Computed example of a mutant assay.
Amino acid sequence: MGDMTPSERLAANAATEGGFDRDTTYVEDRITADAPPGGPTGERVGQMVWPVEPGRYRLVAARACPWAHRAVIVRRLLGLEEIISLGLAHPLHGEPSWNFDLDEGGVDPVLGIHRLREAYEARIPDYPRGITVPALVDVPTGQLVTNDFPQITLDLSTEWREHHRDGAPELYPEALRPEIDEISRWIYTEVNNGVYRAGFAADQEHYDEAYDRLWAALDRLEEHLATRRYLVGEQITEADVRLYPTLVRFDPVYHGHFKCNRSTLREMPVLSAYLRDLFQTPGFGDSTDFEQIKQHYYGVHHEVNPTGVVPQGPDMGWLLEPHGREALGGTPFGRGSAPGPVPAGERVPAEHTPLPVG
């Protein structure tokens, strides 16, 4: 491996996709600080820019979804709760859409819609692809702005900077962006999407390949994080935010439901300590709803779990045990500070988390 950076070493030997193909076509509009007021401006859907305006947009997420979980974490770490409102979809959904059955009357109180599909089709009639979260919706028009989840979190860090809270961390520092981007691509291919390749493998050959590839990646992470507290640099960055949702879902979902069962994550000394460290950091554990996570995976993936039975376990209280990662140096927020308390209307129910809620 020679003089490769840590992220280059991790990215080495990344194989091509096989067995499970994810649709990665999104509405790629962006909300940018230099966009003209009013907006959007541009030539066509997917290439338009919308202006940064506090209160104009609603982030629609689902606590069950790992891709949406990233956006919820970043919004909280940066203190954007009063700037971009949050709508939470029900963990169970049918083919048509994510819906708002968690809200009174099954209607989002800000957007006034029952299904997220309504926002998609307000923008693109007869929208032909899957309805995904996270999604940013323009409140005045009720139209989807973007569902490009990798770009959403980067733009929250860079384009909304004027509205970050005092002490907000630098999740995407300019000097580290090449390394963050490289390791993030590898994490997506090998870990975030790797568990899905195993879980939705159509035959034994593809499953075996996906299983081996995933565990090779987790073993590399175990080695990488043995001597450093975070993936890149000396504080939490976008890379850690992208890895966390997969790791925290591993034992309750991916280990059994997706047959990623060489061991539990709890049995891996480095990754389990790294996960405990992040879980105990404000913004991470306090946005994690284990009950909704299990309801979604076990209740929606009928091809994997035909009965729809949701397991009662496992006990995730181990995430509150000491992690000892402080000895490796670094601090969670660098020169910044922790976010304040979770807004009352956004708290995870006490019975859905081992964390004390208050």
Score class of each variant (00 low, 15 high):
Thr5Val: 04
Ala11Asn: 11
Ala11Arg: 11
Asn13Glu: 15
Ala14Ile: 08
Gly18His: 15
Phe20His: 15
Asp21Gln: 14
Arg22Trp: 08
Asp23Ala: 12
Thr24His: 13
Thr25Cys: 12
Tyr26Ser: 06
Tyr26Ala: 06
Glu28Ser: 14
Asp29Met: 07
Arg30Trp: 06
Ala35Ser: 15
Ala35Gly: 14
Gly39Ala: 15
Gly42Lys: 08
Val45Leu: 08
Gln47Thr: 14
Val49Gly: 05
Trp50Thr: 08
Trp50Ser: 08
Pro51Leu: 12
Val52Phe: 07
Tyr57Gln: 07
Ala62Cys: 11
Cys65Ser: 15
Cys65Trp: 10
His69Ala: 04
Val72Asn: 01
Val72Ile: 13
Leu77Asn: 03
Ser85Asp: 14
Leu86Thr: 05
Gly94Pro: 10
Gly94Lys: 13
Pro96Lys: 12
Ser97Val: 03
Phe100Gly: 06
Gly106Arg: 06
Gly106Gln: 08
Asp108Phe: 07
Asp108His: 15
Asp108Ser: 07
Gly112Met: 04
Ala119Asn: 09
Ala122Cys: 00
Pro125His: 14
Tyr127Ala: 11
Pro128Lys: 09
Gly130Asn: 15
Ile131Pro: 09
Ile131Phe: 10
Thr132His: 11
Thr132Ser: 15
Val133Asp: 06
Pro134Ala: 07
Leu136Ser: 10
Val137Ser: 05
Gln143Ile: 00
Gln143Phe: 01
Gln143His: 07
Thr146Glu: 05
Asn147Lys: 13
Asp148Val: 10
Phe149Ser: 12
Ile152Val: 09
Leu154Thr: 12
Leu156Gly: 08
Ser157Met: 01
Trp160Gln: 09
Trp160Glu: 10
Arg161Val: 14
Arg161Gln: 14
His163Gly: 01
His164Ser: 09
Asp166Leu: 14
Glu170Trp: 03
Glu174Asp: 06
Glu179Arg: 01
Glu182Arg: 14
Ser184Glu: 06
Arg185Thr: 12
Trp186Cys: 01
Thr189Cys: 04
Glu190Ser: 14
Val191Tyr: 12
Val191Asn: 11
Asn193Thr: 06
Asn193His: 11
Ala198Lys: 08
Phe200Asp: 13
Phe200Lys: 14
Ala202Cys: 05
Glu205Asp: 15
Ala210Trp: 12
Trp215Asp: 08
Ala216Phe: 09
Leu218Ile: 05
Arg220Val: 04
Glu222Thr: 03
Glu222Asn: 03
Glu223Arg: 04
His224Cys: 01
Arg228Ser: 03
Leu231Trp: 04
Ile236Leu: 04
Thr237Ala: 00
Arg242Cys: 00
Leu243Asp: 06
Asp251Tyr: 04
Asp251Arg: 04
Tyr254Asp: 07
His255Ala: 13
Cys260Gln: 02
Ala273Gln: 01
Phe290Thr: 02
Gln292Ile: 00
Lys294Met: 10
Gln295Tyr: 00
Tyr298Leu: 12
Tyr298Val: 13
Val300Leu: 02
Val300Asp: 04
His301Asp: 13
His302Cys: 00
Pro306Trp: 09
Thr307Ser: 15
Thr307Lys: 10
Gly308Thr: 01
Pro314Leu: 13
Gly317Phe: 03
Glu321Lys: 03
His323Ala: 04
Gly330Ala: 02
Pro332Asn: 05
Phe333Met: 05
Gly334Val: 06
Gly336Arg: 09
Gly340Leu: 13
Gly340Asn: 14
Pro341Thr: 11
Pro343Trp: 11
Ala344Trp: 02
Arg347Phe: 00
Pro354His: 02
Val357Gln: 12
Val357Ser: 06
